[in-house]
Amino acid sequence: MSSHVAPGDQVTSGLDRRTELREFLRSRRARLRPQDVGLPSHGRRRVPGLRREELAQLAGMSYAYYARLEQGYGDTMSAEVLDAVARVLRLNEEERDHLVRLAQPDRHSTTQAAPPPQGLRPSIQRLLDALGVPAYVVSRRMDILGWNRLAAAVFGDWGQLPPEERNVARLIFLSPEMRGRFADPDRTALKLAGVLRINAGKSPGDAYLSSLIQELSQKSEEFRQFWARHEVSCGSIGDSVRMRHPLVGEFDLVHEPMALPGGAPMRLITFHAEPGSRSEEALRMLASWEMEPLR
């Protein structure tokens, strides 16, 4: 599958589950070579990767049965069948869970479409303010619902933006200033596209999330290319990200996301530096400088 999506192409309002499942499986077949899974290679192929019949053979099922899965009819298939497909395709845990949700949405859908939350409980904002590390809270569609002073020092003062523009994915793909805060913005952007992909798979009928995907697909060539790769990511716990700050230069932060209980799905995102590191010193310097009130 080509990774290019033309600017005029449309992202549907709501995830088309069968299309997503078909394209996800095709993208994962395309990244494997026959020799990767112990099959002989017979020269050049018309399309890269494993053929459907080869995958079916390795997974211990008929070609027709596997073809039904790629057509979106996985509802009646057992967990063992999906596990066999995941094993052959060498899916990681996040990818395997994504496959199961797409194949059997009635059994594994975890969230329903709902209006995005408009703000935080005061107690959550007080928690953010009390933390000694950069931290913010996002909704399922990556809207920034609250943050603390150190997050503003590291990422920029989101309080200066209109509320509708306070969205992590939107800023990474559409704001040069926000991208400039990351030493490797492409890596960050790819991970964010993967987070949106997983969230869309959990709630395929969420029109609010789909509207963001639609906007990014229309305005960002990079997003179109990353979205077409069908990467999935939960925003892995313990990931390190290198920041680039105009005052303290480059430093590394460790990313720790955690779900907040109650109400609409929200995640608290915290960042910390390794103790005793230059990065910890950079954070300490940022925290010590007097800042204007955020709001």
Rank of each mutant, 00 (worst) to 15 (best):
Asp186Trp: 08
Val100Lys: 02
Val248Cys: 05
Arg26Met: 14
Glu222Cys: 06
Leu32Ala: 04
Phe226His: 11
Leu21Ala: 02
Gly263Pro: 03
Val254Tyr: 01
Gly180Ala: 15
Asp129Ser: 11
Leu150Gln: 00
Gly38Arg: 05
Arg17Gln: 13
Gly238Asp: 09
Arg90Lys: 15
Asp252Gly: 02
Pro261His: 15
Val11Leu: 13
Asp83Ile: 07
Val37Gln: 02
Arg31Val: 11
Pro105Gln: 05
Glu177Phe: 11
Pro105Gly: 08
Pro162Arg: 07
Pro162Asp: 10
Gln10His: 15
Leu32Arg: 06
Leu145Cys: 09
Pro122Arg: 10
Arg29Pro: 04
His255Glu: 08
Pro163Glu: 13
Ala84Gln: 05
His230Ile: 11
Ser277Trp: 12
Leu131Asn: 04
His230Gln: 15
Gln57Trp: 05
Asp129His: 08
Leu286Lys: 04
Pro204Ile: 06
Leu82Phe: 02
Arg31Glu: 12
Arg197Phe: 05
Pro265Gln: 10
Arg68Phe: 05
Gly262Pro: 00
His4Gly: 13
Ala169Cys: 09
Asp16Phe: 05
Lys202Asp: 07
Val81Tyr: 01
Arg187Glu: 14
Asp106Phe: 10
Ser109Val: 11
Glu93Phe: 07
Arg126Phe: 07
Asn199Phe: 08
Arg170Leu: 12
Val232Trp: 02
Leu145Gly: 04
Gln112Cys: 11
Pro117Cys: 14
Ala67Gly: 03
Gln218Ile: 09
Arg229Phe: 06
Glu165Phe: 01
Phe271Pro: 00
Leu89Gln: 02
His4Arg: 15
Ser109Thr: 14
Leu212Glu: 03
Val85Met: 09
Gly146Met: 07
Met178Phe: 13
Asp75Phe: 04
Trp147His: 05
Gln71Cys: 10
Glu80Arg: 13
Ser288Lys: 08
Asp143Ala: 09
Pro185Met: 05
Pro116Asp: 15
Glu23Ile: 08
Ala153His: 01
Ala30His: 07
Arg187Ile: 05
Asp106Gln: 15
Leu102Ile: 08
Asn167Arg: 04
Arg278Asp: 14
Glu164Gly: 07
Leu294Tyr: 05
Leu190Ala: 13
Ser2Met: 14
Asp9Arg: 14
Asp184Ser: 12
Leu283Cys: 05
Glu222Asp: 14
Gly49Glu: 06
Ser220Asp: 02
Ser41Phe: 05
